[in-house]
Amino acid sequence: MTARHLWIVMRAIVLREALRFVHQRERFVAALVRPLVWLLVFAAGFRAALGLSITPPYQTYITYETYIVPGLCGMILLFNGMQSSLSLVYDREMGSMRLLLTAPVPRWWLLFCKLLGSTIISILQVYAFLLIAWVFDITLPGWGYLAALPALVLAGLMLGALGLALSSFIKQLENFAGVMNFVIFPMFFLSSALYPLWKMAESSELLHDICAANPFTHAVELIRFALYLDFNAMALLWTALATLAFMALALWGYDPARGMMTRKR
């Protein structure tokens, strides 16, 4: 298998993901509605209740709306990663996934291409959200929009890999919605997406420790620091390790000797 063949496979899979997204316009709208509701509705109510002190990477006091923007970017990546995995379960039931995995291409490359395609779509949605936030006068450092791109890519790969891992162990399409809710909502709410960890520590040390161990917290903090032209080495380390762990789990799940290829008869 030459590099040219690998490139052709990647282009085909990424293009297929893009075409599927284009034909599902409601998916784009839904991806923006959730974070915009938090930004424009819930933030107005929480603004008075949650005072925010000067904490890195912020150099001054900020509004609650400004604080939750990185977390809402993470929300888009999280939901889209799960949505992309839902399509994998559907493809498996229709038989197209089985056909794809029998192609004479390394399985890890096929899964990575699928993951890359969903991540690119997620990042486009994130920048659309950031543009809308800018229209509503929630501005970030100009270069931060560009500096955040690598952080968004890594965070998108991590959350997409988690979705891949989950899809490899779900037998039926009907079961995926329950699993998504079981994963998405605890992962999102038990993180620093909506409130700083020091706020959580004031309420419960146990919840603080759970939030600090949540890989989604580190993905959000990686994006947050990047948007403000700062670097969080610890967040980068844990996000990268979580990406490798989730990807390894997905490869194990899609192994014909163990995963869905043997369970699905």
Rank of each mutant, 00 (worst) to 15 (best):
T2P: 13
V9F: 05
V9R: 04
L19G: 01
Q24V: 01
R25S: 13
R27V: 02
R27Q: 04
F28R: 02
V33K: 04
W38C: 02
A43I: 03
R47L: 04
R47C: 00
R47N: 13
L50K: 02
Y64T: 09
E65W: 00
I68K: 06
V69F: 01
P70I: 12
M75S: 07
I76K: 07
M82N: 08
G95Q: 07
S96Y: 03
L101V: 11
T102N: 06
W109Y: 09
L110G: 07
L115F: 12
L115E: 07
I120K: 01
S122W: 04
I123F: 04
Q125N: 14
Y127E: 12
F129M: 09
L131Q: 01
A133W: 07
L146M: 10
A147W: 05
L149M: 09
L149V: 15
L149I: 15
P150C: 05
V153D: 03
L154I: 01
G156R: 05
I170S: 07
Q172T: 12
Q172S: 12
Q172R: 14
Q172F: 14
F176P: 10
M180I: 11
F182E: 05
F182R: 00
F185T: 12
P186E: 11
M187W: 00
F188I: 09
S191C: 10
S191D: 08
A193C: 11
L194N: 06
Y195F: 11
P196H: 05
P196K: 09
K199A: 14
A201R: 11
A201F: 13
E202N: 14
S203M: 10
P215H: 08
V220M: 01
I223M: 14
F225G: 09
L229T: 13
L229N: 13
N232P: 01
M234R: 08
L236C: 08
L236R: 00
L237G: 01
T239N: 00
T239I: 01
T239Y: 04
A240V: 09
T243L: 12
A245H: 06
L249Q: 01
A250Q: 07
R258L: 01
G259I: 06
M260L: 14
M261I: 15
